[in-house]
Design a protein around this nucleic acid. Sequence first.
DNA 1: CCGGATCCGTTTTGATACTG
DNA 2: CAGTATCAAAACGGATCCGG
Lengths: 107, 107
Amino acid sequence: MTHRLSDELICPVYRLQNIIGGKWKIIILYELSTQTRRFNELQRSIPGISKGILTQQLRELEADHMIHREVYKEVPPKVEYSLTTLAQSFIPIIQSMDEWGRKYLES
Amino acid sequence: MTHRLSDELICPVYRLQNIIGGKWKIIILYELSTQTRRFNELQRSIPGISKGILTQQLRELEADHMIHREVYKEVPPKVEYSLTTLAQSFIPIIQSMDEWGRKYLES
DNA sequence: CCGGATCCGTTTTGATACTG
DNA sequence: CAGTATCAAAACGGATCCGG
């Protein structure tokens, strides 16, 4: 997401949309909320996401200080993703979204 | 959003993403949370959104039973959008997102 | 084999003009 | 006023390639 919503906006919801607005970002944060994960592990846990877009959304979340990327200099490569404290403070909201979904969404 | 995430997924967060995943949907719900609005009024309250995409996202939210579209048969035309009770039950989550943004997002 | 980067096609969103 | 139509741009998806 290179394009961002207007900056001159008062409402925090607009700024938040710039952070979690990507198609998979809430899901990525949700998956990382229980445990640190490696790249391929994370991809397998999110059915339907492609490598390319996973990389991109992870980089954007990192730029927004929501995740931490830890690179281990090994062969084969090992990269672990985890939530920052900022993102951890957002997890309760994702949990309430999850609960709302359980309660109100059937299909 | 014609393309939807995999249906075979357990997690409600995935299904929720299909509903609120559009770029402007959370913002639309936020704007409608305080009052019923007409189309142009709604567009003016959301800087940066175009008519075309506003129409589309409103139609998708309507299909997901999140908003109600009331057409008055007048000249000039008058259409009012409001939240359904389903969407109203989701508003507390958007409010906590708003609070989170106020607390943690500076820029 | 792991974690990407790159290229390219499809989907979603944006901007503007036009209509009943 | 509340859209629709059209075309352009941006985001996303799939496949392949690559260094370590």
